[in-house]
Computed example of a mutant assay.
Amino acid sequence: MKALISIDYTHDFIADKGALTTGQAGQLIESAMISLATSFIKQNDFVVFAIDAHNPEDKYHPENTLFPPHNIIGTKGQKLFGDLGKWYEIHKDSPQVYWMNKRHYSAFCGTDLDLRLRERHINEIHLSGVCTDICILHTAIDAYNLGYKIVIHQNAVASFDPIGHQWALNHFQKTLGATLI
């Protein structure tokens, strides 16, 4: 089996006035992300929404000093952006769809993601969302170290840093052995 992990497609990362926005680069991948999620549901596969979740009062979290406040738990900034948010509202009660808050860049770090995948006998993960060179990259590295086959959908990942985006795509393929589609 396989799973789609949709990472951080939220208002704060995508909207023009988002706190840490990818802007147009992120907005351009929305239809590809919806198409992927729809195809995974139709194939009876697993769709995970791994979403950044922060508390600005957490003085121990390094992102609170590296970046402006973003994806604050319970705010509009942490909600899925645009039509992907509408897609989620329609499908959120499906046993094939799982929302998880994440505290770190990687969707695996400090979460039950590995357990959720293994109990479903999933050995192949497909990654989409933002940012290619931050949260997608760290999730892919952890997936590699855990033995998952990795597929990156190039038309469904984006970053606010075009050079970092391209570097990460090369790293996925040449260092992690990921398949780029």
Rank of each mutant, 00 (worst) to 15 (best):
K2H: 04
A3Q: 05
A3K: 04
L4S: 05
D8L: 07
D8Q: 08
D8N: 12
T10P: 04
I14K: 13
K17F: 03
K17A: 11
A32W: 08
M33T: 09
A37P: 09
K42C: 00
K42V: 03
Q43M: 11
F46L: 14
V47G: 10
F49Q: 02
A50Q: 10
I51Q: 07
P56K: 10
Y60F: 12
Y60Q: 13
P62T: 11
E63P: 01
L66S: 14
F67E: 12
N71M: 08
I72R: 06
I73T: 12
K76V: 15
G77W: 06
Q78D: 07
Q78F: 03
K79R: 11
D83S: 10
K86D: 15
K86S: 12
E89K: 14
D93Q: 11
W99N: 05
Y105S: 13
S106P: 05
L115T: 12
R120M: 10
N123F: 02
I125Q: 01
I125P: 02
S128E: 03
S128R: 00
G129K: 01
V130Y: 03
I134K: 02
I134A: 08
C135I: 04
L137C: 00
D142N: 11
D142F: 01
L146Q: 14
Y148L: 03
I150R: 06
H153M: 01
V157W: 01
V157E: 05
F160E: 08
P162K: 04
G164D: 04
A168Q: 08
F172A: 09
L180R: 07
I181R: 11
